[in-house]
């Protein structure tokens, strides 16, 4: 207990957000879906944390639970989400999800951008209206000042003719432009943390690269931390400082970017890395795929969740107990019985 408090104090200046033992469950008619099951991680100031995993592994839900916007049957059952806010510690998990405190943090301290630029903007309001709304909500400025700021933001995210675009509707913009507008909206209040939930997945590859470049640039300029969620390891390599690998609601490996790519420990991470096509690889070699499919997330069997698909699985160990996330080398944590 004492020890923990000390680390928090020591980390005061470098840590922005700590997630501890987070559990988010969805109470469905068919049973309890453990979307996020005992996940912990930290993120430092001005750092980029990448969260990787297949669809349905709980990475988006983790992000949503930080903002407390998990959709209806889902509930944050346990855990702490500690936000370091100029010397104060706020546990977001304790706040009322529709209360004043969390609303003051949403959009101001922590902003979020989403996967689908097509649907994440309202079809019947202008871009400007939607960005200005965020600005006016969190900053004490006038309508005209907000408009000026919005124009400036649109310019900063690389929209070439902001004076025209500000009064346009989302259907008049291309996918890339929409995502740029979303970024402008998210950064308009200068947040200390930006959560990007697969922001480039739905875009063309070339546009993807542009947006990624833009985000790196803006991070340098605004100095915010980023949680970048994706299933694309290439994107992760491009932008992250640290990586958290998730599988079926569990964090299975957490390390800095070099460690993950050069010294992966968990069989799942190893499998993921092998399944990426690489330049320079011998032609005609097959890409390795991870065998099997993700088991249905309801009523998971006992033991390691990766057991059925794991090459290294040991019967009697892996299918009996659930491995916990332990630190193997400094800053490299993994949850697998191979490393004890």
């Amino acid at each position: 207990m004492d020890f923990e408090n000390k680390t928090i104090l020591n980390n005061k200046n470098i840590t922005l957000l700590q997630v501890k033992n987070l559990k988010v469950y969805f109470y469905l008619e068919e049973g309890i879906l453990k979307a996020v099951d005992d996940v912990s991680f930290d993120i430092g100031r001005k750092k980029v944390l990448g969260i990787v995993g297949e669809s349905g592994c709980g990475k988006s839900v983790t992000a949503q639970s930080i903002l407390r916007i998990v959709p209806h049957p889902g509930r944050t059952v346990e855990g702490e989400i500690l936000l370091h806010q100029n010397g104060n510690l706020v546990d977001l998990a304790r706040l009322n999800p529709s209360g004043r405190e969390i609303r003051a943090i949403r959009g101001k301290e922590i902003a979020m951008i989403f996967q689908e630029p097509m649907t994440s903007l309202s079809p019947i309001h202008t871009i400007g209206n939607q960005i200005m709304e965020a600005v006016l909500l969190h900053r004490d400025i006038s309508q005209s000042e907000a408009r000026e700021l919005t124009l400036e933001m649109l310019y900063k995210v690389g929209i070439s003719n902001p004076h025209q675009r500000i009064d346009e509707y989302s259907y008049q913009l291309s996918g890339g432009l929409r995502q740029r507008a979303m970024i402008a909206m998210a950064l308009s209040c200068n947040p200390s943390l930006l959560i990007a939930d697969e922001p480039t997945t739905a875009l063309d590859v070339t546009v993807q690269a542009q947006i990624l470049e833009l985000m790196k640039e803006l991070q340098r300029e605004f100095g915010m931390s980023i949680i970048y969620i994706t299933h694309n390891l290439g994107v992760i390599a491009e932008i992250s400082d640290e990586v958290l690998v998730m599988y079926l609601g569990k964090a299975i490996e957490h390390a800095n970017i070099d460690e993950i790519f050069h010294n992966p420990l968990h069989p799942y991470t190893i499998g993921l890395l092998k399944s990426i096509p690489k330049v320079g690889k011998k032609a005609r070699t097959r890409l390795e795929a991870i065998k099997g499919i993700v088991p249905p997330p309801l009523d998971l069997p006992r033991g390691c969740r990766f057991y059925q698909r794991c090459r290294e699985a040991k019967e009697g160990i892996c299918n009996v107990d659930n491995p916990s996330l332990i630190e193997v080398t400094k800053g490299h944590r993994v949850s697998c019985f191979l490393y004890k």
Partner: peptide, 16 residues
């Protein structure tokens, strides 16, 4: 307890 739960689970999965 866990074992019991598992048995129940099995039945459910087969229904699924």
């Amino acid at each position: 307890k866990v074992y019991k739960a598992m048995k129940n689970n099995k039945r459910k999965i087969s229904a699924e």
